[in-house]
Structures are given as C-alpha cells and as structure tokens.
Amino acid sequence: MTDAPLRGAAGDTSAAPTRRQAYEARLKRRSNMIAAGSTIAVVLAVVVLVPLAPGWEAVQRSFFNGEVFAATFPGLLNAFMLDVAIFLWCAPAIAILGLLIALCRDVRAPALFPLRMFGALYTDIFRGLPVILVIYLVGFGVPGLGLPRPWNSPYIWGSLALILVYAAYVAEVIRSGIDSIHQSQRSAAASLGLSEADTMRFVVLPQAIRNVAPANMNLFIALQKDVALLSFIGPVEIFRQAGVYKSLMANFTPYVGAALIFLAITIPATRYADYLLHKQRRRQR
C-alpha cells in the first residue's frame, strides 16, 4: 500500500501520518510479525520433528522415494493426458445437459409437466448416487446388453456416467442461478412483449449463468479429479498407472507423483474460481 491515498483520505497533504494511521501501521506490523513467527514455528516443527518419528525412514522410502519418483513421473504425466482428454470431451456435454435439465425444471406450461417431473427426478437420482456406482452400472452394465464394438467402449459409457452425474449438479447450480434473478427482470422483459423463451434466453439465463460461474467452476475442478474413477472400468489413466507402478515396485511414491500432477492443475483452477467469486461479490455490493 502506498501512503498517497492515505494522505488523501485524511484530507492532509503533508507527509506526516495522522495519529490513527500511525496506530494502524503499528497494529499491522505487529500482526505481520505474529503471523511470520507462527508460520516459521509450524514449518520448523514439521521439518524437524517428523523425521524424528521412528517410522519416518520407512515412510520416506515408501512414499517419497526419489528413484521411484524419477522412474515413474514421465509415465504418470503421459497417463494424465488421458485424464485431460476425458475431461475435455465431458465438460461441454455436461454444460449442455446440465443447462437442458435446469431448463426442464423451469418450464411452466402444464403440457410440459412430465418434462418438469423428469428434471426433478433426474437431479434427485444422480445427485443421490456415488459417482463410482454410476460408473460401474453404466460402464459395465450398458455394454453388457450386447452392444457391438466400438459402441461398448468403456470410454464412451464411463464418460457418459460422469456426464450424467455431473450434469445433475450443474443443473442444480444453474437452477439456483435462475431462481436468483429477480422477478422484476422477467416483468420488464414481458412488458416489452418478449416471449417466455426469449426472456429466458436473453434476459434470465445470461445473468444466471454469470452469477453461478464460480460454483460451476468448482464443479469442474471436482470433475477433473473424478475422471480418475474411470480407471475402475479399464482405462489406464494416471490413477491406474500409478497403481500399476505401485504394484510393480511395492512403493507408494507414484501416488505422490500423481497427486502433484493433480495439484498442479487444480490449485490454480481453485484459486481462479475464488478470484471469480471475490470479483462477483464486489460487483454485487
């Protein structure tokens, strides 16, 4: 922080800080020192004390093994490309299906009541099931009906399972966004003669989707992690690849490598979602 705005705020152009500014500066210095001190203490405790634990050497050899890490990391990175690919083809489908389901739940015409009921049932069911269960049921179950290749591929049905589950969450988020748009916006649109469909498309949805962008962003971060669940039905993505290395070397270090790769993607994404949320809160104030 520069002190120029402070002077301005105090209505004083001289360099001398006001009594209040001096007090606040003192307070800030003090809290900074406490924060730094406690951080150093915690880091020291971890770095010094953990290796003193009797099992540390075994844990280090098993989880933080440099040799194993170097040998497996390139393979893991390669396998992660499959996670990214699965994410990339699932995400747009989830966005579209989620939007459609959200719209289903908002239709008002009585003739379309079944659609509305379907939307409610859909979100209830798929939000109520563990993702892995859906992946098993859809990934093994549907191809088991006797579909010919390539239509029985676990990539197709596993991805569909992810899409089905995540679309339910996205639909709920979008619906909450639609509900958050004040009735007066719909009134204004109606008074101009806009149809209900146009009102939804041009007035309500753009605002709703913008309002819930951070929440959806968090869902997509979760999706990037849950892509790993597809490994249960065959695809050798990073989680499975790490498991293979673990099994061959009887060593958990590949999992740590996989964790690092996930974090390299998810931490920046999470930070970005927080930033979006923060920006939005500021705008609404």
Partner: peptide, 26 residues
Amino acid sequence: GIVFQSYNLFPHMTAAQNVMLAPRRV
C-alpha cells in the same frame, strides 16, 4: 409500454442493447 420505479434494466447489456432487444426479437 411500462416503466418501473426500479428501472429494471438488464444489467448484462449495454444501454443500446437494452433498447434494441425487444425490437429485434419481437
């Protein structure tokens, strides 16, 4: 036409877009 106490402009559109939406769509 009706004008409301709380304006009810569409916040995600510019002034000109607010004005043009209905003539375009309707």
